[in-house]
Amino acid sequence: MKVTRELLREIRNDLPMKLTITRLGQHGPIGKHSDGFFRFQCPFCKELRATVNPKNNLAHCFSCGENVNNIDLMMLQGHDFLPAVKILGNWLDQYRRDLSDGRSTA
């Protein structure tokens, strides 16, 4: 898999963060839907106030002010950059296949 700017943009913007957190399972942060937004436990301050902006798929913690995207989240879970991008790229491909097949995701 070649890492391009386009691939990185697609991973950050097109792969729903909820799907990434769901795929991380017990190794990822806890998350929930609240007031129409997906929120999860901030990997920095541990408060359940990291909220995903549905327009850009970026999470912002309203406690500590940190921003997190899918790649950041994987690296904070202990993955190096290239393995994180490879995993996320595969999840993005599967997400797109599921969408085109009409299957439910995350």
Rank of each mutant, 00 (worst) to 15 (best):
T22M: 04
P16Y: 03
G36I: 01
R103K: 15
L82A: 09
R39G: 05
V3T: 02
C61R: 05
R96Q: 12
E6L: 14
C42Q: 10
P16L: 03
V68E: 14
K18G: 10
E47G: 08
F40M: 14
E66M: 13
H60P: 10
D101N: 13
R5K: 12
N70P: 05
R9Y: 03
V3A: 06
D72V: 08
T105F: 06
M75G: 13
T22V: 09
R5T: 00
L7I: 07
G31Q: 04
Q94L: 02
L7K: 06
S63L: 04
L76E: 06
N57V: 04
W91P: 05
D101E: 14
C64E: 02
Y95S: 06
D80F: 06
L19V: 02
I87R: 14
G89I: 01
F38C: 15
D14Y: 05
N56F: 03
Q94T: 01
A59M: 00
G28Q: 07
G36Q: 09
L73V: 08
M74V: 01
L8I: 06
H33C: 08
N69C: 02
D14W: 03
G89T: 06
G78A: 14
R97Y: 09
G78H: 15
E66R: 14
H79Y: 15
G102M: 08
P29H: 04
L58F: 09
K18H: 03
T4Y: 07
M17P: 00
D72I: 06
G78K: 15
V3I: 14
F81K: 08
C45E: 12
D80K: 15
R5M: 02
P83N: 08
N53H: 12
L99W: 00
D35Q: 15
K86P: 00
A50P: 15
T4P: 11
Q77I: 11
N69P: 00
N56V: 04
N53V: 01
G31E: 02
V52Y: 10
H33N: 13
W91G: 04
S104T: 08
